[in-house]
Design a protein around this nucleic acid. Structure first.
Lengths: 134, 134
DNA sequence: TATTGTTATACTCTATAACTATA
DNA sequence: TATAGTTATAGAGTATAACAATA
């Protein structure tokens, strides 16, 4: 299982490099949801990093036109980060690439797939928090 | 499955921090086998990093007394890296920590465990190379 | 006075290039 | 001349501390 996990990690790094993103930027991009509207501060917590680093990460995503800062009308200190159209497209694309099952998994029969699905459910496959950047 | 993989990644980072190691140092330590006797050069290839970085990684492991440089008798340019007793102990300990199944997995019944084992075999669970540090 | 986000700065990890010593 | 390892140096990514604007 360790080998399987290591290969997935490697794929994460490869997908990031393919799109000219650092691992942290890829994680950040994927963690943003299309309808979302999140303050910088909340992103710092979600990404487990310092606020100043959020400034830097968002700066680069904004330079690439993937993301846009907006000022919150309710509190003018707060800036909120939203995906642009281009950001949504790239996010969906890399999300698809990251979710694509490895070929050995595609070769599994129906019974094995059902078993895997059941087991992952029991393992709490999507419980807890979303992916963190690092 | 992505959530499961992310949690494993998080555990790797936590184990590293708990022992005062960077992720790269933890990966390096785990990749060394007790009887091994490997040149710096071969480690650079195994770890997919530059030779100068191997010098730095081994420096810190040596400062901690986990590893020892020895000169190869056959080629005096070559230095070989071996685990000390303390290094073997720590390596075994973190290896155990990293291999410990998450509690949800311990809760799986015999049939599910057998199925998981069979499926991971089909997925090539331990094919390919050992874990790389990064 | 406390909080949001930014800027200035320093630290860590990594790589590239130059160097020493062997081969 | 080429190779193993080190040292000097630069770059990327991260954090800490000081700051401006707003609450």
């Amino acid at each position: 299982m360790t080998g399987f996990l290591a290969r997935h990690r490697q794929r994460f790094l490869t997908v990031a490099a393919d799109h000219g993103l650092t691992p942290a930027h890829l994680g950040a991009l994927v963690s943003l949801q299309p309808g979302d509207d999140r303050s910088m501060r909340s992103l710092a917590e979600a990404w487990h990093c310092d606020a100043s680093n959020v400034t830097w990460l968002v700066d680069r995503l904004e330079e690439r036109g993937l993301v846009r800062r907006e000022s919150s009308p309710s509190d003018r200190r707060v800036k909120t980060v939203v995906l642009t159209k281009a950001g949504e497209r790239l996010r969906d694309q890399v999300d698809t690439e990251l979710s694509r099952p490895p070929e050995q998994m595609l070769a599994l029969g129906h019974d094995d797939l059902a078993a895997l699905h059941r087991i992952l459910d029991r393992l709490g496959g999507d419980g807890g928090e979303p992916v963190h950047p690092l």
